[in-house]
């Protein structure tokens, strides 16, 4: 991606930004996040099919923010994350330069957030194709079967919280599970407590999940926990016709009320 390298170098050289967040190849060839502050090192930036992580997760980290103005290599999920972070006041629009990457891997010219919004609006915002089949299959199960399925899957959870760490929308500096006065969610990794954690995580992301699937990908024991949040994404869209991360002025769909909201979920 020479165009990406040239652009990153230019931004660092003319001091438009102090850091470029992108991908580089690690020693074993695995793509890993790179934080480039020296224009000379922009050469190491890559973008190919290995680059799947949602880099937006670093935008709210204090260590990264403290470097200064940031540029970020942004695929569609990253762009949507940026929109959500701005709407939830975790990021300021003038503190970020977006190096947009199109679905076919080309560098996009994202001059500002309006352009980015236009690009997002034109894109398919439903859950990614590769998960749709699973979600459809999953929806065919009875409530009892669903419960058994999740009981089995979540019994594997070791509460490492990788799902939380990988998620760009889980930016709290203190997570609910770290509250021990009182300890609502037990610390121990047991099936019951694991379920409490995952239900809580899904509810905290309802209407906010931008369907990047990073939580499931990050899970070391292979729990498809992204299905929970993606299912909620579908539900929110069905009820309110809203996808998360489409503008920097989004109001949280589940905590705002419009008189014409459907109320079919009230039993």
């Amino acid at each position: 991606m020479t165009s990406l390298i040239i652009r990153a170098k230019e931004l660092l050289e003319n001091k438009t930004v102090q850091v470029v967040i992108g991908y580089e190849a690690g020693p074993t060839g695995v793509a890993r996040p790179a934080f480039i502050t020296d224009p000379a090192k922009a050469e190491s930036l890559i973008y190919d099919e290995r680059c799947v992580q949602n880099l937006a997760v670093y935008l709210t980290k204090r260590e990264v923010k403290n470097i200064g103005k940031m540029a970020i290599v942004a695929t569609l999920p990253v762009m949507r994350s940026i929109m959500m972070l701005i709407s939830e006041q975790q990021l300021f629009a003038d503190n970020i330069v977006v190096l947009g990457i199109s679905a076919d891997g080309k560098l996009l010219d994202i001059a500002d957030n309006k352009v980015m919004q236009g690009y997002i609006e034109k894109s398919d915002l439903s859950n990614p194709e590769k998960y749709k089949g699973l979600l459809t299959e999953f929806n065919k199960l009875s409530p009892e079967e669903k419960f058994l399925y999740w009981q089995k899957e979540l019994s594997k959870c070791i509460k490492c919280y990788a799902c939380r760490q990988a998620c760009p929308m889980c930016y709290c500096t203190r997570c609910t599970v770290e509250v021990n006065q009182p300890q609502w969610i037990p610390v121990k990794a047991n099936t019951h407590g694991n379920m409490e954690w995952h239900i809580l995580r899904a509810m905290h992301l309802a209407g906010r999940c931008i369907s990047c699937g990073e939580c499931g990908r990050a899970c070391p024991v292979g729990i498809p926990c992204h299905l929970l949040t993606m299912h909620l994404t579908d539900q929110v869209y069905n009820y309110f016709k809203v996808y998360a991360g489409t503008s920097e002025k989004m109001s949280s769909v589940l905590s705002t009320y419009e008189p014409n909201d459907k109320e079919s979920f009230i039993i």
Partner: peptide
């Protein structure tokens, strides 16, 4: 440097 565990998402403001 904590000041508060609030992250300032201000979702509380909208509700």
């Amino acid at each position: 440097p904590m000041y508060s565990t609030c992250v300032g998402c201000f979702l509380c403001q909208s509700v």
